[in-house]
Amino acid sequence: MKPSAQTARVAFSLFLRRIRLLRRAMRHRHDLTAVRDVTAGIHPEAILGFACIRNERLRLPYFLDHARRLGINHFLVVDNGSDDGSLEYLAEQPDISLWQTGAGYKASRFGVDWTTWLQARYGHGHWCLTLDADELLIYPHWETRDLRALTGWLDGQGQPMFPAMMLDLFPKGPLTAHPYAAGDDPLVHLHWFDHGNYSVQVQPRMRNFWIQGGPRSRALLADPRRGPTLNKVPLVRWRRDYVYVNSTHSLLPARLNRFYAEDGGEQASGVLLHTKFLSSAPERSGIEKARGEHFFDSSLFSGYYDALIADPDLWHRHAQRFQGWRHLEALGLMSRGGWV
């Protein structure tokens, strides 16, 4: 883009926005109470995991196992008022620093204010992986190369971030037909996905990427504009003046959203396997709908909640079965780019 008054104006307003978000995160640090703070033991080379959770006792064991297998050395977790034993479970883990808060989820920009503060405080200079409890990161060669290899390669390429698209996994048959127990591999129950119904575009203002679609747009939402944002940038070599704008979909400064090639080439990217549609999803949707803490205007999504509560069958004849990252790469959902 050529420098012009327009681009300068956008850049300046984005700068102001970043400052505003950072100050907001500073204010929200008072929401947090440390339950277990072992951050003193963080090694300078450590790769950190950040998460904000609520009532995820079911998913946590496998989620943590997977992240540890990838090579996360230390987790920094905010618990937002769990009452299902998540807090107690997390407090027992040796590699987790845990904070607790009862403050509003929506009021803290869906937890981003809290994690932003922790990232600024502890993440500076580290590779930071920010996930929700229902996301499992996979990337090219993940079974044989841990995150040290990936981040080392990214450092060598001069690329401080790594994108991963969310891929909604769903079961065959109604969601509740496959009961899930804590610690199970969710992929045993959820291993179907849509591979080619995504809307891909670039937003003009921040020039960041916008992928929507998948089974939620196909079957659960009436208005495609409200389709879930699926692109994410979960892995970033953090600096204390960075900030996530909404969830981990986009960041400021805006150059961190430029992870895609515009000249026809393919940059390396990963996939976040999204385990939202476990058997607990319909019940959870009822609770979330009543709480109204998950969208700025929850009334727009009541149809979506109702569709989920009705325990839908998202499977169709052309759904693909998950067979590993090479399969996803062949289908065009991710790419190893230049990393062989």
């Binding site: 994108p163 065009g332 190893r336």
Partner: peptide, 19 residues
């Protein structure tokens, strides 16, 4: 790999390729 990084797969639009 070099070919894929530089020219990509024709007709693909995803998170790593938006020509």
């Amino acid at each position: 790999a070099r070919e894929r990084r530089l020219r990509g797969r024709a007709g693909l639009y995803n998170q790593g390729r938006f020509p």
